[in-house]
Design a protein around this nucleic acid. Structure first.
Lengths: 249, 249
DNA sequence: AGCCCTTAATTGCCTATGCAATTGGACGCT
DNA sequence: AGCGTCCAATTGCATAGGCAATTAAGGGCT
């Protein structure tokens, strides 16, 4: 009901009213209470419900729109936006999309999977706690049949229990996670490493050849969601970003 | 004079008034007409000059403040902000600062310099036009006496003529350019490459070892300012960034 | 059903006004 | 000179009201 959605907006009384409204709506979106596609109550309804003037409500919503959390259209109203699938610096959230954007044919295979608690060396490599239950996956993505990137991934079952009963046969784990989990923060690290012998065979390159390693860890609030190491072979790959001195352009 | 500053703000009549004001002020800042520290006319002055209401002027200035171009304080007024020296993803604008942040001792030396027009292979590597006058520099930066990064840089003399009479003995070219030029856009590319034999000697690593290559080109408006290739040795370096699904956090 | 026209819901934008909060600077006192 | 007090400039925030632009939805006509 629209009534439910209206009632969900609660002000906390700290700071300017427009900012209370902004944070209240933002938290409903980031907390998953209002998933993408949900329609936000119109300004008049919020204005009456909250006892604020329309300009004040407007200011909060305009700011959220500028942050990309909602999209607004005259007459249609305001809806919660889908998180952008591309990111300015690292457009690598979906590997199938990345490959298809290059106009190449995408394929992938799951090379290994092990559920349970991490071995000591795995825990060390991904910064895991000994006791926690995880899924450990190794996946090879191909573009036009050539190896494109080797993916090694940890999924934290405490945060994403549904991963235990998914075989990732149709959807690669990165894309599956985008649909079945929320994330609020990510950390990327980029470095250059020589290819290990095992990895070199899989990527069809010489051992020791320079590879680009992208390590990404994501969290939802404080809970870890997933950690992944993406090994891109040789110097076939470049990651490009553009921005100005005051931020993204 | 304050009068000059007021007159400098010109609306173009396209789009909402608040946005015309925002763009007008932004262009004065980005164009270097109002350098950092310049005080922006108060809302009342702009309001009378432009014939807009104070709320409309306010809206434009608040937005510029949120974009980081200006800082505003009650009573003190509004001043043009200094561009932030750090960037979320690639905090590598100043290599001395980067090294000192790691708590290491910084040193550097200019290995080669050549002024004039680019050779064909240089033009190809940096995407230059044949005829233009440039400075070509090769610099080695050290951290605690160990090679830290090898820098090869082009400076476009048409855009930064002062570079011709600077010997870069005291200040490395990247830092010198930050002080003596403006830039409005940058493009970064990250890739992994094997070390060329010559470069390997300079970096004190084995030939063919994996290196991280950062290529950056910067422009001011449409005019190219500089292009640089930074070669970081081995896997001693990682570039880390954090953000959320809706942008930088 | 299909098509056009009107209506109304919703956001976008602007003005005018008022009060609150902050604080640089003037002023006066010692 | 140094110190405290007060004033006024400036921004921050909110309200009320109104008009414009967009467009989904309904109604009427063929």
């Amino acid at each position: 009901m629209a009534h439910d959605r209206l009632d969900a907006v609660k002000l906390d009384g700290t700071g300017p009213i427009y900012d209370q409204i902004r944070r209240a709506v933002r938290d409903l979106i980031l907390g998953g209470i209002w998933p993408p596609g949900t329609s936000v109550p119109p300004e008049h309804a919020l204005m009456e419900q909250l006892g604020a003037s329309r300009m004040t409500v407007h200011r909060a919503l305009v700011q959220l729109a500028r942050e990309g959390l909602i999209t607004r259209r005259r007459r249609s109203g305001t809806v919660v936006a889908s998180p952008p699938t591309t990111h300015a610096m690292l457009d690598i959230l979906s590997i199938p999309a990345e490959v298809e954007r290059l106009g190449q044919r995408y394929a992938y295979e799951v090379l290994a999977r092990r559920d349970g608690r991490p071995s000591p060396e795995l825990a060390l490599r991904f910064g895991l706690k000994r006791g926690e239950k995880i899924v450990h996956l190794v996946t090879l993505h191909r573009a036009d049949d050539r190896p494109h990137v080797l993916e090694e991934r940890i999924i934290h079952l405490a945060t994403v229990p549904a991963a235990a009963s998914e075989d990732f046969a149709r959807t690669p784990p990165g894309d599956w996670l985008l649909q079945h989990s929320l994330w609020s923060q990510a950390e990327h690290a980029i470095s250059a490493v020589p290819a290990e012998p095992d990895d070199a065979v899989l990527l069809d390159i010489a051992a020791g050849e320079a590879c680009l390693l992208i390590e990404r860890r994501t969290w939802n609030q404080a809970a870890p969601v997933t950690a992944v190491r993406l090994l891109y072979p040789g110097n076939r790959h470049r990651f490009v970003g553009r921005f100005g001195p005051y931020g993204a352009v």
